[in-house]
Design a protein around this nucleic acid. Structure first.
Lengths: 207, 207
DNA sequence: GTGGTTTGACTAACCGGTCAGACAAGGGGA
DNA sequence: TCCCCTTGTCTGACCGGTTAGTCAAACCAC
């Protein structure tokens, strides 16, 4: 059940970063969310981190590598939180609630994450490295959903995989709509609630 | 029931374009899907359309206007197809099947559409004009889902709106996963089938 | 000729990445 | 202890290439 915890790092050996490097990733991540990965320049990152542009390039060879490292760093953290949530809760509904809680953390962070994630998805179709990262993340998260469903029902393997896809679709799809919401900050709770209810309703529907 | 058909154009008076202009939009759309809206240059569009870059600027003032016009043009076509599908089918399940059919047209076109749409969503958070366009599209499509659900059940108004959001989440969410699929062309049918089944399962679950 | 099109040439800005060298921190060797 | 050499980190200046947008002139249909 905890297998996903030990999944190897996907691409770059980004793994553990020093506090200083982690701070730079955090700043770059914030910039990507606000300006977009294309409009964010190396100079922006350098300014935010209080260092020269040349030094950013020195540490992260190219801009693409930097962006990839940032995304990997974020995805690892989110994936770990999802995995953590499922192991600590008992029972199907509790696990689902915990998973959704792990994803719907707080409005601001959620927003940043899904904006960046939307760009990752769009870019995956054009760049294999982004596609690989995306695929790695997808396997972990959907795998977690599948584990929860399998451990609390007697579905066939195929049925479990399908249900996990549907669960993921509900979460991602509702998030996308929430992103469009003008009052996204206030509506966060409603969407979270709707998310849990619709997942449980769907899983119950086929019993 | 057909109210959405007459919804006014959202932003630019793009409405009807001459065949020549429409061809340019189609070419630009293809470019946006393959290269992304940021990497697509005015020169790319000009080359594809067999005209000078200056002429592209002459017709569409700025690049942002061009991109916006292209997106609006595509969104109008998709929205019209969804609306059309719902009026021509009878019965809840048939309407749902028709709507999904209207969206899952063919792999290539679907892929182009959702890649561009993902960029629209990501960009909406940073640019009000894109957000407005997105909101306009969202209202039409989700409104259609709501109409179908309302006309075939006795839910409360709130419940209808929520169910429509869930339906939309299922469609968008499954599409996003399908985009990541390496064998997206072959899997198109499976995803379409899963989409219809999961929607019906969900709608049945609360009766 | 007049008004709407179309174009090539041009510009101003931007941006990713290079490079030569500065600076600090060890690390022997005498 | 002092000196020199290496090594990793960091920087300012710079370059080559790209791109959105301008403009004056040409073109064309009526």
């Amino acid at each position: 059940m905890t297998r996903a915890l030990n999944v190897a790092q996907p691409l770059l050996a980004a793994g553990e970063q020093s506090p200083k490097q982690e701070e730079l990733l955090r700043l770059a991540y914030r910039l990507m969310a606000t300006k977009g990965m294309h409009r964010m320049t190396l100079q922006d990152v350098a300014d935010a981190a209080g260092m020269s542009k040349a030094n950013v390039v020195y540490h992260y060879k190219t801009k693409e590598d930097l962006v990839l490292t940032v995304m990997q760093w974020v995805l690892e953290r989110v994936a770990a939180r999802v995995v953590q949530a499922t192991v600590s809760a008992k029972g199907r509904d509790a696990k689902i609630r915990a998973m959704v809680d792990a994803i719907f953390v707080d409005p601001r962070r959620n927003r940043d994450f899904y904006i960046v994630y939307a760009e990752l998805i769009a870019h995956s179709s054009r760049n294999g490295r982004f596609a690989d990262l995306n695929g790695w993340f997808r396997e972990i998260v959907t795998g977690q959903y599948a584990d929860v469903i399998q451990s609390t029902s007697d579905r066939s393997k195929r049925s479990v995989a399908e249900a996990a896809m549907v669960v993921r679709a509900l979460i991602d799809g509702l998030f996308l709509q929430w992103l469009e919401e003008p009052e996204w900050e206030a509506r966060h709770r409603e969407y979270k609630s709707l998310c849990v209810r619709s997942i449980i309703a769907f899983l119950d529907s086929e019993r």
